[in-house]
Design a protein around this nucleic acid. Sequence first.
DNA 1: TATGAATGAGGGTTCATTCAT
DNA 2: CATGAATGAACCCTCATTCAT
Lengths: 196, 196, 196, 196
Amino acid sequence: MSKVIEKKRQKREALLDAALSLFISQGIESTSISDIVKGADMAKGTFYLYFKDKYEIRDQLIHEMAKRLFHAAERKLSQVRLETLEEKVIYLADCIIDQLNENKNILRFISKNLSWGIFHDMLVTGEGEDFYGKYVMMLEQSGRKFRNPELMLYMIVELINSTCHNVILRQEPVTLEELKPELYGAICDMIRRQEI
Amino acid sequence: MSKVIEKKRQKREALLDAALSLFISQGIESTSISDIVKGADMAKGTFYLYFKDKYEIRDQLIHEMAKRLFHAAERKLSQVRLETLEEKVIYLADCIIDQLNENKNILRFISKNLSWGIFHDMLVTGEGEDFYGKYVMMLEQSGRKFRNPELMLYMIVELINSTCHNVILRQEPVTLEELKPELYGAICDMIRRQEI
Amino acid sequence: MSKVIEKKRQKREALLDAALSLFISQGIESTSISDIVKGADMAKGTFYLYFKDKYEIRDQLIHEMAKRLFHAAERKLSQVRLETLEEKVIYLADCIIDQLNENKNILRFISKNLSWGIFHDMLVTGEGEDFYGKYVMMLEQSGRKFRNPELMLYMIVELINSTCHNVILRQEPVTLEELKPELYGAICDMIRRQEI
Amino acid sequence: MSKVIEKKRQKREALLDAALSLFISQGIESTSISDIVKGADMAKGTFYLYFKDKYEIRDQLIHEMAKRLFHAAERKLSQVRLETLEEKVIYLADCIIDQLNENKNILRFISKNLSWGIFHDMLVTGEGEDFYGKYVMMLEQSGRKFRNPELMLYMIVELINSTCHNVILRQEPVTLEELKPELYGAICDMIRRQEI
DNA sequence: TATGAATGAGGGTTCATTCAT
DNA sequence: CATGAATGAACCCTCATTCAT
């Protein structure tokens, strides 16, 4: 009985894997369901046993990938001893940016498709991992008060995402190393501005 | 002889117009070349005498639209008397944001497709209107010096574009009116940070 | 042992029930085997243990439905006291027409699929209920003689079925109430014409 | 220029021909658009330049076929000299029935799909040939008055269509030659009954 | 130049049927 | 007996592109 379930899990995984590499290499619009099942080496009809359409796959992939990015960043954070809130946030940002820089395909995929709606869902409903809760706790631990923590996070995330996209993929208008200090400076300012 | 050239220009224009209204009303992916030529009231084959595919039209339209946005903002700026650089930049930003908010389809069309590459090209090669030159002049007129004016502009533009997208289209995570003061504050901080 | 047989009978019945309600609510062509087994709350493969395909179910259902229609009409007839043969036949027709008018889906289902072949089988081989025999007895009880009772029945049934179809479903070219007197008049004429 | 139009007419005709022979030989539901274009020896997409779907072809075919049936019957009627209205109607019916009997495929196709709505449209809007008008004129020429000529026609047509179907295709429950006198008798009765 | 009929590959989707469990 | 995951053929339909006129 669990053999069947295991097999289903594998099929689903194979579809996700195939879709991811296709989405990354040729874009979502140019990827057909035919392509995906061919990549996963199964029959076309099987796709519909697991997903409604390719956008359902996309959303689940974004969830998955973003979760991994944050999880890795958080693990690294837990291994260092940082004082201020600013240091912590920037450390997290730096981890994530470095991951994206090392895996440009993930960046290409995520940043084109990550809307705040999906992102926020992911933060909150990450099964087993409540990233947003941890973020709120981090703010509390600092002993400081902020007017609108959600908006603050929104602005920081959007700034990072949007500025890094071109810089990493095209080194335009500056290199990543040139961008970072300015970006982290801007993040500090944002935090300060939100403090009551 | 020039009559023929004029006629060709008109056809081209008709195709651009038809494409624009279709792109903003139903999206690029959902717009077929059939739709465009129908809208421009000409035969299918004619399309290929003027454009390679719809993406060629799209890029030219993005240029055009962005130019109009900036042009309108600039004209409004020239009609008021503002003291500081910050005030001017924020005034420009506010004009552009309001235009996007009033015409959400344009936002949808532009912001999904506006990469910094295209944007920068537009700023520089805007035929007849050198927006980037005007931006540099504005900085000079303030009598202040900045480390990297291009990066400064990049960050401001990306922050505006990325934060406004969700806020205008979905009122998430805050309304536009709630976002604006924070956004303009962040812009001020960015300018200050870049000052030498 | 008979428990097993009983269980099988129940499964078969469940499939028939589910198919019937789907056929009359959404048509035969639009009903898939998936739909039927879902309605009967069992697995897809199970279907093939009981029926070859949905058309096998359809034919059995038509038998069943037609039997019910006639049975109900006959029961009503047995509760009234009518003199002539014509009165009796028209009374039966009226009962059946009213049933079809009250449940247009049944009309849609039956009348599209009811060929004389199936119909005649049903009249004769109705397990437990020999409608055709009762019809013949009715003729005999009238004390009158008819040249070809089967042809007479055939013509009456076909006239009713074909004229009522459009009239009930589309009120074209007249309403049912307008049709009825003409139809019953025609039936009387047919009976008289067949009398020796 | 007219060469192009002629070619289009031929394509359309080819599709209609292919569809008809497929509809007749394997039924409408079992005929796919793929089958039709294969039969007409052209590309799939071409179909959609001429028809919306196979049901549009079906309706046009029924129109066409029914028109031909009536036209032929009428031509024959105009060549004989008949006195009474009954004789004329029966003569027409006989012509049509004989045509159907000689070409059972047409019967198979027509009688399954001919609803009164389509039939009436055809009678009225037959381009160039107003069959219904001719029917009304025939009634007038007889010098007799009828309560509801349309209903009269409806009942006659439906009776013919429904009784002949099985009789021609299966010789059940009688042969065509046995049916005819009864059928024509019934038609006479119907006419008489409608007379004021 | 301009046309628009024709193409046919390729998209998404459904579903009867099979078969290992 | 019963299951339901997997199949893949077949469906309808769209559309970029070509080419004879």
